[in-house]
Structures are given as structure tokens and as C-alpha cells.
Design a binder for these strands. Structure first.
Length: 543
RNA sequence: GCGGGCGUAACUCAGUGGUAGAGUGCCACCUUGCCAAGGUGGAUGUCGAGGGUUCGAAUCCCUUCGCCCGCUCCA
């Protein structure tokens, strides 16, 4: 990995952000080659997801896949993040259930004790039989007396007076009516070992809760020049919410019909606990996200469709080997609203033999639209005129529903890093032992033109070929021209930059108008007519 | 967050208190006839930053920032 990082720096792929000031933890900049490489990956995603989704193939409904793009703001209304659930826990220590992935405020965790009030509600800590999540003691008491499963656990037969204020309940737990004390588990009084013993409020399983921790997931800033707390806003931790928030506008203004997708790319920000592993976990990073909306009945089919296509797509950009895997989440890993989640994972040098996530494909149900509908008050239901019972006039009655959503969410910076890791090759038998086998579609430099030696008219021919190729391929990427130093050195430089093809003008070119094509991956050479170079590149670069 | 390692040229690194170094790369010129070839010359350093000790600090001490590794975590 160190060698890859050194090459990235040396050749201008990736620099440390603010390096001359000592760097800043969790932030990285792209140099000339890196910026182009990343743009090529972003473009490939855009082309294959928006302009011609899934390479033109049909979805599970037998019709072409349709997606439209949006570009939404990094800063949204603060309530967007309340609805999405990202604000919760910003200021309060939080506990996670590792199994169900649910998170709650540590001071909302209540242990229910069968403790006689005559004991004064005091005494040293005991492990409660059961815990619940409630916002107040009163709510906890209320749930104990009203919820059947809880009543059963405590063998509640009869309930008398209960007081949320004092946290007591008068109940018959089998030995006649007594006052019982309901006590909150104080997270800050527990050591880690004790917390391991507390049963999960969701599953009852012990040892599945994390220690309470302070989270600052979102970057906070202020709108307006006065910067008071009232002007507090957050920088988005994901691009997806911008899509959900504009879902109704897209429906209302573009004539799209469910099923369809909305794509959004751009920067997101997370205060990662531990930025590490080069650009893999950065605090500022770019996402390419699609939210694909469909009818609930078709959602599982679409989930499988996207999961498989996204895996295929990553293979198509060059991650073709064993280092790429699709990992379906286990049932107990899933969010409570999800009917399926998969990760496309890559075996990075720093994760090996394990894998790191490149993209998550999640079945999100209608969770997000439901949340935003509830928090904003806006009606986000879709009126599907192609469903419902047929009417005499040939139309259908229509069906109103909140679409389900499949979310393929890719990390572009992680993608670039995976491409670099996959492309990085060491072959000591070569004159240029270190080189990048980047896919021609992604390579920042598409081709280079060299005169074998800088004399006998070769430079002039090279300049002409270079100009012609630039004219034809400038949209695809850089075409280099280099006549300095030895030919071997020039090949080596291009190898290191990941340039797939070099065209060399030599003595024979003067006689028969042919040039040498030198292939980066094999070092092999073959001759081709100078007029055929453009066609050759067109073929290799695709499009 | 805890523990460990590291930070000297663009890259890899040497330099343990006394003039800032090497290899590679880069640039120029010469040479060139297909793979970092050869020759000559050249440019490039707040020794990560700040403070302290000392006649004198890249070197010793303190603080801090960053990177890497392990644990934790991955919202």
C-alpha cells in the first residue's frame, strides 16, 4: 500500500489536502491525473446509470430502465436530517444495538426492575431482566402497565395506581399489591463490563449493546453572516436525502412513471471516528447514488436486479478479479425496514484478507418517503394510473402508494482507490517494473505519441498524428506527445501513469506510413498504418 | 478514543550534538534506431510545526499536527 501511495503522490494522482500546512486529518486532494481518473469514473457511472441505464437492457418488468438525474444542495433544511434520523444523537451519547443496528439515546435506556419500593428504590446495581427505550420514566412506567409482553415478563396480574413522576407502579406481581420501582439504567454509572450484561431492548439478547458514545456525525455550520445557533445547518452526510426531498417535484414535472430512478452525485461529509487507510475513509467524500422507486410488490425483483447489475458494472470498469465480491447481508444485519442489503466489496491491500465496502445496494422499503411525509406534512404518495381495477373506458382506477426504494449507493473515492489498487502491478522482469493497468475507459491518459528519435522528420510526423488524435479524442481524455529522452524512459513514464497505448513514429514510418503500437500491459508491439490509429483507438476506448 | 511506529529533496531513505547527504526522479544539452541506455551540466530542503536545553539541535526534552499499524468503531 505504501508503494501505491508513493506512486499516487509521485505521479500526481492523490495529494494530502493542505499538505504544506501539515495536512488535515481525513481530507485528500486529487492531482491532475487523479482528478481526470475520478471524473472518468463519475462519467462512466453517469453514462451507465442515467444516460443509458444498465447499458440499455430491460429491467425485471421487461421494459427499459429509466433514470433521471438531480443535483441537490450539500446544505439542506435542518429538518431534513431530523426526518432522516441523522440529527438524533448529535448531542447525546448514543448506544447501538450491534445486532439490529438500532441506535438510541443512552439516557433513554430504562431497565425495568422488580424492586419493591420499600427498599427505597436504592441498592447497588443489578442487571435488569428487561430493558426498554422510552423518552421519560413516565413513558417507561406506562409501557410496563400497558404492554402485554412486558406485563407477562413481570407477571403483572393487576395494576393499581402508577406514577410516572416517581417512577413507581402499584401492581400485583404475584405476591399481592405492592409498589414497585421502575428505574432508569444510568449509562454513565455502568462500566463496560456491566453494559455487556444488559439485555438489548429490541432482542433481549445480552452483550449486543455498545458502550455509550458521543457522535458528531454531521459537520455543522451556519447560514447568514451572524452565525447564531438559530442559523445552524448541517452539511449532508449522504446525497440520497436530496433525492427523497425532491421526489415529488420530479414526479410532478418530468412525466416519469414508477418504476424509475433518480440519480444524484456529489460531495458528502462525515466526521468519521477514525479516518484511515488513505482515501478509504475520508471526512469529505463523493457519492454516486441512485434511488430507484418501484411498487412494493416489485421491489424485491428490482433489488436483485440492481444488486446484480452493480456488481457487473464494477467488473466492467476493471475490477474483474477475485478481489471483488458481492456480499449479501445476513438477516440480523439488516435495518428494521430493509428487505435486503448487499455490499459490493473490494479486497484492498489494507483490508486483506478482508474486504472493504465500495457500494451498498439497499432495499429501503418506503422508510425515507414515510419519514419525510411525516416530518414535512407534504403528500408524497404516488398515483399509479397503471394499477387498480380496469374501468369501462379502458383506463384503470389507479392506486395510491408510497413507492419502495432500491438504493445503489457507490463511493466514488473508494472506487478510484480500488481502481488504483487493482491496476497497480509490479513486474520485476520489465524495464518499468511498476505500472498501472487501468482500463482504457478510465485511464486519464488515453494514448501517447512518440518519435523514436528526435530527428529525421519523425518529430514532425508525431506532432501531426498527435494533433489529429487530439482533434478526434479530446473528449475522451488526454493524448500525450513526448520526444524527450530515451524511448524506454517515455514508455516507462506512460506505464506508470496508466496510459494504455503508445504510438511510435520510426524510420519505417517515413517509408510505408506505418507506426508501432506498444501495448502497456504486455509490452508487445505491432505495426499499423498511421491512418488506422484513430480507428484503433476508437475501438479500444469504446464510443 | 487507547497503544505502538514513523515524519530529512518530487519519491525511497542515510545521517545520534559540530558545514544538509545518497540513489532514483526532474530540467537542459549531447548522444540515440524500441523499453527507466550513456555522457556532461543544473535546479530543488522552513530536516512536519511550535517551544525548551545547549556556545551550537535534523539529532536531546516538552507540546502539537500529520501518516502508518493494532484494538475500538464504521452512524
Amino acid at each position: 500500500m505504501d508503494a501505491i501511495m508513493a506512486l499516487c503522490k509521485r505521479r500526481g494522482f492523490i495529494y494530502q489536502a493542505s499538505e504544506i500546512y501539515g495536512g488535515i486529518n481525513g481530507f485528500w486532494d486529487y492531482g491532475p491525473l487523479g482528478a481526470q481518473l475520478k471524473k472518468n469514473l463519475r462519467d462512466a457511472w453517469w453514462q451507465d446509470m442515467v444516460l443509458r441505464p444498465c447499458w440499455g437492457r430491460s429491467g425485471p418488468n421487461g421494459k427499459p430502465v429509466r433514470c433521471v438525474p438531480v443535483e441537490t444542495c450539500i446544505i439542506q433544511h435542518p429538518r431534513v436530517w431530523e426526518a432522516s434520523g441523522h440529527v438524533a444523537g448529535f448531542n447525546d451519547p448514543m448506544v447501538d444495538d450491534k445486532q439490529t443496528k438500532q441506535r438510541f439515546r443512552a439516557d433513554h435506556l430504562f431497565g425495568l426492575f422488580a424492586r419493591p419500593q420499600s427498599s427505597g428504590g436504592q441498592g447497588h446495581f443489578e442487571i435488569p431482566k428487561v430493558t426498554i427505550v422510552a423518552s421519560t420514566v413516565g413513558e417507561a412506567v406506562e409501557r410496563l402497565v400497558s404492554e402485554k409482553p412486558l406485563r407477562k415478563i413481570f407477571n403483572v396480574r393487576d395494576v393499581g395506581h402508577s406514577s410516572g413522576a416517581s417512577g413507581t407502579v402499584q401492581a400485583d406481581l404475584g405476591g399481592g399489591m405492592h409498589h414497585w420501582h421502575v428505574e432508569a439504567v444510568r449509562w454513565n454509572q455502568l462500566d463496560e463490563a456491566a453494559l455487556q450484561e444488559v439485555p438489548s431492548p429490541f432482542t433481549g439478547k445480552r452483550g449486543s449493546l455498545t458502550s455509550p458514545r458521543q457522535f458528531n456525525l454531521m459537520f455543522k455550520t451556519y447560514t447568514g453572516a451572524t452565525a447564531t445557533e438559530d442559523d445552524k445547518v448541517y452539511m449532508r452526510p449522504e446525497t440520497a436525502q436530496g433525492i427523497f426531498v425532491q421526489f415529488k417535484n420530479v414526479i410532478d414535472t418530468t412525466r416519469v412513471k414508477v418504476p424509475f430512478g433518480i440519480a444524484n452525485t456529489g460531495k458528502s461529509f462525515r466526521n468519521e471516528v477514525t479516518p484511515r487507510n488513505f482515501t478509504f475513509r475520508s471526512r469529505e467524500f463523493e457519492q454516486a447514488e441512485l434511488e430507484f422507486f418501484c411498487h412494493p410488490d416489485e421491489s424485491v425483483d428490482w433489488y436483485r436486479f440492481w444488486r446484480d447489475f452493480r456488481m457487473e458494472w464494477w467488473k466492467s470498469v476493471g475490477l474483474a478479479g477475485d478481489n471483488l465480491v458481492l456480499r449479501e447481508h445476513d438477516k440480523d444485519e439488516l435495518s428494521h425496514y430493509s428487505q435486503g442489503t448487499s455490499d459490493v466489496e473490494y479486497r484492498f491491500p489494507f483490508t486483506a484478507p478482508g474486504f472493504g465496502e465500495l457500494e451498498g445496494i439497499a432495499h429501503r422499503g418506503n422508510f425515507d418517503l414515510t419519514q419525510h411525509q411525516r416530518h414535512s406534512g407534504a403528500k408524497l404518495e404516488y398515483n399509479d394510473t397503471e394499477r387498480g381495477e380496469p374501468l369501462p373506458n379502458g383506463q384503470r382506477r389507479g392506486e395510491r402508494y408510497l413507492p419502495h426504494c432500491i438504493e445503489p449507493a457507490a463511493g466514488l473515492d473508494r472506487g478510484v482507490l480500488a481502481l488504483l489498487c487493482e491496476a497497480y502491478t509490479v513486474d520485476p522482469s520489465r524495464a518499468s517494473p511498476e505500472f498501472l493497468k487501468l482500463h482504457p475507459r478510465l485511464a486519464p491518459i488515453k494514448a501517447a505519441v512518440f518519435p523514436l528519435v528526435a530527428k529525421d522528420g519523425m518529430p514532425e510526423i508525431a506532432e501531426k498524428l498527435h494533433a489529429d488524435l487530439c482533434e478526434r479524442f479530446w473528449r475522451a481524455g488526454a493524448i500525450e506527445l513526448d520526444e524527450k529522452q530515451s524511448i524506454g524512459k517515455r514508455y516507462a513514464r506512460m506505464d506508470e501513469a496508466g496510459c494504455p497505448f503508445c504510438f511510435t513514429i520510426d524510420g519505417d514510418t517515413l517509408k510505408d506510413q506505418s507506426v508501432t503500437i506498444r501495448e502497456r500491459d504486455t509490452g508487445e508491439q505491432h505495426r499499423i498504418a498511421i491512418d488506422a490509429v484513430s480507428g484503433f483507438l476508437t475501438d479500444k476506448l469504446g464510443g
